[in-house]
Design a protein around this nucleic acid. Structure first.
Lengths: 210, 210
DNA sequence: GGCTAATGAATGAACATTCATTCACCCATG
DNA sequence: CATGGGTGAATGAATGTTCATTCATTAGCC
């Protein structure tokens, strides 16, 4: 009943996933910037449209509604980030090195696009609805990569076996997340990626003097 | 010019800080529950009023506006939490033990009031406006306590001196924060406070096998 | 009876979404 | 090669709803 030609609404250019979608990209980029600037709930769809150089109604040719804009930003970035992370991990054997590269990648991605980082660290965490969606993918797949590296390290004797890989993974992720949030809120413009090594070092070696 | 009797609006019972404020407390408690349930932006002031058992207008006798409700929740909990943390820390000498008790206190406070935890971990992080306010106090004073414990530990030889206390403090905080967020989003009802020791142990000793 | 707290209906502004209309382009035809 | 009409993308003004906030009125108390 859904897509028979009887109900045929006018074909929409890229509601789901068009191949090129230059205009769709422009709207998405504008949404990242406007949401980062004003905050999701305070941003008006008309603002996004203006920033993208299109009319308000045009946004609805590419996205179902305002929510869908936020979700699309999330899914796109997530997809890209995870793919990159998987590729990075695939070619490394040493668990410590894997964690280091995952951390660098994570912070580099956010550090290279401040507005995207704001959307991820702040705007996306509004309401448990988004959080749960966020959590169901990022914290499953991405945390999974970290956990796997740690578990491998436990296998090969690099890491302690008396800690739970799951808890350790959450910890490392939390530490990175906090670095990103701090970076956003800080007036200083330091390199976020540079924090990665310090975090992984502390995670691996601990704070205790030896 | 602000508070001269010329401008004297009708005295409001507890706009800022009334001594007893039983009704104010009821409204604040209702706000925590309603915001946790529906999310700040989707919650209506009328919902809060209903949950508190008062009329919509009454909310405005105690709070300037909807924002002020969120800010008040934050400031009250913050004040209490910081006071408790300071008291805890004051009577302990060992840096490791201080960190452990700070962590336990942090997670216990959130673990004892799930709705408050939701407001803190999710709702309060909406828009950089709140985040900055959040950051300016929590991340200054609270992180300060953690940093001081770490710095003391560096002085007395407990902790490595080749790490920056500031970065380490952010890391530990981030790890705890992540535990709290995970706990909220998890369907399982485990004890959040129990995570504290694992986190501090990992922070102090690191993941590396020894 | 005078005072303040509390009420809740009414107000009005803000804004997501719709949709009738315009515009730009393509190509079949003479 | 010029024309025109068909197609669907794009527009943006209009709509309707959703609340935060106000305030004239009432209730309770000393």
């Amino acid at each position: 009943m859904a897509s028979s030609s009887a109900t045929a609404r006018r074909a929409r250019p890229g509601s789901t996933d068009s191949p090129s979608g230059a205009k769709r990209d422009a709207i998405l980029r504008a949404a990242i910037d406007v949401f980062a600037e004003r905050g999701y709930f305070n941003a008006q769809v008309a603002d996004v449209a203006r920033a993208a150089g299109v009319a308000a109604g045009t946004v609805y040719l590419y996205f179902h509604n305002k929510d869908h804009l936020l979700v699309s930003i999330f899914e796109r970035s997530m997809r890209d980030g995870l793919a990159e992370s998987r590729a990075t991990v695939a070619e490394l054997r040493d668990p410590r090195e894997r964690l280091r590269r995952l951390a660098r990648g994570h912070l580099a991605r956010l550090g290279n696009d401040r507005n995207l980082a704001i959307v991820f660290q702040v705007e996306l965490r509004q309401s448990t609805k988004f959080m749960e969606r966020f959590s169901a993918t990022l914290l499953r797949d991405y945390l999974g990569l970290i956990r796997a590296a740690i578990a491998d390290g436990q296998q090969d004797g690099t890491f302690r076996t008396d800690i739970k890989a799951t808890v350790a993974a959450k910890m490392l992720f939390g530490a990175l997340d906090e670095m990103a949030t701090n970076w956003i809120l800080s007036a200083r413009r330091y390199s976020l990626e540079a924090d990665a090594d310090a975090v992984v070092d502390l995670f691996v070696n601990g704070a205790r003097a030896r």
